[in-house]
Structure formats: structure tokens, C-alpha cells
């Protein structure tokens, strides 16, 4: 969980507004920190796979299952699911309904680097929505699926190559307790 630390205030920006002004300080107060989502609680451990010698924590189990879920990739400026991605969606739906059935599924829509405005974020969201619809069509309960768009702000690759841009036009899966 990333915490926000509020830095000290913008000091004395009200130039010439009077030297007697007391400069406000943005303190790293509890109030500010409290607005963050609560830390993930250590939930009761899930039953470990039979073959495991050491019991897996729930977080470890979630991380492992999450890795089994395959990202869905999209064409430039498009949010329809490509024919070559339908098998990935089916596999993801299967994992969501079996190994990950007790978790919520968060879909993270992403775009390539061409713009960071709201429209690009909306494009990322429409990609996530397309995947959600496909998952629901494969039997995943819609109420288990939430969505977010990261626009271009979460690239997995930052090179200026076509392969790199293609990798960034994607929807990732995250599991939530």
C-alpha cells in the first residue's frame, strides 16, 4: 500500500500579499493519511495446495493465481477484443471461476504513450469494459468485476518501438480479497 506523504505547503506564493501572512503548512497529519484505503488485512489463510510443504499465505496465493491470468492486448485506438485474444479471455474466465472464485477481479485498462488526457483514459476503460463483458459472457459474475483505467501511466515497456507500444495497449488482471 502506497502511502501519501503530504509535503510541506506551498510557501509564500501569495507574493506581495503582505509579509505578515502566516504561511500555511501542509502537515503529514493522520487525517490525510486516513483517507487512504485501509491496508489489506491479513485474511485467514486459504487451504494450501496439497503438494505444498510450506503453507502459502492468502496474499502469496493471490499473487500466484494472478500471474496465471493472461493480459489481453488491443490494436491501436481500438477497444474491441481481437480474435487472437479470445482464447486468453476464456482461460482468464476459467481461472476467475475456479482458483480465483473467492476473490474480486479488478481489470486495469492501459494505453500506449500517445496522450495522457481523459480520452486516453476512457479508451483504457473501454478496453477494460470489453474484457468485463467477455468475462461475464463466459460465466463470471459481473458483481465480482471492477474496473479502472490507468491511461498511459502504467506502461510495462518504455522503449520507442512498435513492440513496446503494442505491449502497453492491454488489460491486466488484479485479484482483490
Amino acid at each position: 500500500m502506497k502511502s501519501i506523504v503530504l509535503a510541506s505547503a506551498v510557501t509564500a506564493l501569495l507574493v506581495l500579499s503582505g509579509c505578515g501572512d502566516k504561511e500555511p503548512q501542509v502537515e503529514a497529519t493522520d487525517a490525510a493519511v486516513a483517507t487512504q484505503a485501509a491496508p489489506v488485512q491479513a485474511a485467514p489463510s486459504v487451504k494450501a495446495p496439497v503438494s505444498s510443504v510450506v503453507a502459502e499465505t492468502e496474499a502469496e496465493y493471490m499473487a500466484r493465481i494472478e500471474k496465471e491470468m493472461k493480459s489481453i492486448y488491443f490494436d491501436f485506438d481500438k477497444f474491441n477484443i481481437r480474435a487472437d485474444m479470445t482464447s486468453n479471455v476464456s482461460a482468464d474466465a476459467s481461472v476467475a471461476n475456479t482458483k480465483a472464485s473467492k476473490f474480486l477481479v479488478k481489470l486495469e485498462g492501459n494505453c500506449d504513450e500517445w496522450g495522457s488526457d481523459e480520452y486516453n483514459f476512457a479508451l483504457g476503460l473501454k478496453r477494460a469494459e470489453a474484457v468485463k463483458k467477455a468475462l461475464v459472457a463466459e460465466g463470471v459474475n459481473a458483481s465480482r468485476v471492477s474496473m479502472v483505467s490507468f491511461g498511459e501511466s502504467s506502461p510495462v515497456c518504455t522503449d520507442k518501438t512498435k513492440e513496446c507500444w503494442a505491449q502497453n495497449r492491454r488489460v491486466d488482471f488484479k485479484l482483490l480479497p
Binding site: 503530504l6 500555511p24 487525517a31 490525510a32 483517507t35 469494459e129
Partner: peptide, 17 residues
């Protein structure tokens, strides 16, 4: 965030965007 007091509060949340 109010820069004078440093207080932060949540306005609203929404799925997606």
C-alpha cells in the same frame, strides 16, 4: 486538499474513472 490547513478529504469515488 486545502493548502492552507493541509486537510485532505474524499469528494467522491466511481468505478472505472
Amino acid at each position: 486538499i486545502d493548502l492552507k490547513t493541509g486537510k485532505s478529504r474524499i469528494i467522491k469515488s466511481s468505478d472505472g474513472m
